[in-house]
Amino acid sequence: MLLEALSHEFMRNALYAGLLASATCGVIGALVVVNRLAFLSGGIAHAAYGGVGMAFFFGFSPLLGTLGFSLAAALVMAGITLRSKGRSDTVVGVLWAAGMAAGVIFADLTPGYPADLMSYLFGSILTVGHEDLWVMGTMCAGVLFVAVFWHNDLLALSYDPDFARLRGVPVTFLHFLLLCMIALAVVMLVRVVGLILIVAFLTIPPYMAEQWTSSLARVMALSALLCAVFTVTGLAVSYALNLTSGASIILVAAAAFFADLAVARLRQNA
């Protein structure tokens, strides 16, 4: 059945897109979880919705719209969170709400409600085209490059920024870079699982991986693997049962997450 599914080009593209997103999310998600940036990623993701609305209104590529909006949101949040990690919640919340509201207003103003807007909310992995794959591939390569070359710097930054700064790690630069990478990952994930579910995809696999391994690199690799497994399984389920693909992927991830929790709890009691 799986082979039959893969005979369709859109299914093959969906699989490639899912795998590229998995590699990216594994790396970014690990950094999001260890830096406690889940809420902030949610903020960036939803601010991106404003970009989608704007892209429809002005008639440019939604990918460009989300990219621009997410990057802008990321830069603003990076500036705010750099000094005081604790007090950033409010601003993130404001950007979150304002971004989404802007998206809705732009959609209102666009003549003829674009049906496609919904797909950016819930994902449309089955409509990923060749061009999207190239863009995603490039971003994925960029994220992997940064993660490998600055690996220990990112580790030090995440663990003890004061010490990292003292040792000459470009903390400010990397902090901005990290949030921009989150924004990039968000833009990619918009296509795969949709905005609503991005936070779950960036947090579930690394959270699970964090319990199992003791180094950041391994958490990255393991969560990428988990993302890939969830994507493939979710796609298969959605194909077999004719369900929405993005939601299926996330439900598979959530099921695994709760199973993992249950097993851990049982082991604790035993």
Binding site: H151, D153, A156, S215
Partner: peptide, 23 residues
């Protein structure tokens, strides 16, 4: 935080002579 004792000790070896510390 998923980090080992050795990872932390190695942090003390970072210098700003190096642009990045991949390894």
């Amino acid at each position: 935080f998923p980090i080992t004792v050795m990872d932390v000790a190695l942090m003390g070896r970072m210098t700003h002579h190096r642009l990045f510390h991949g390894r």
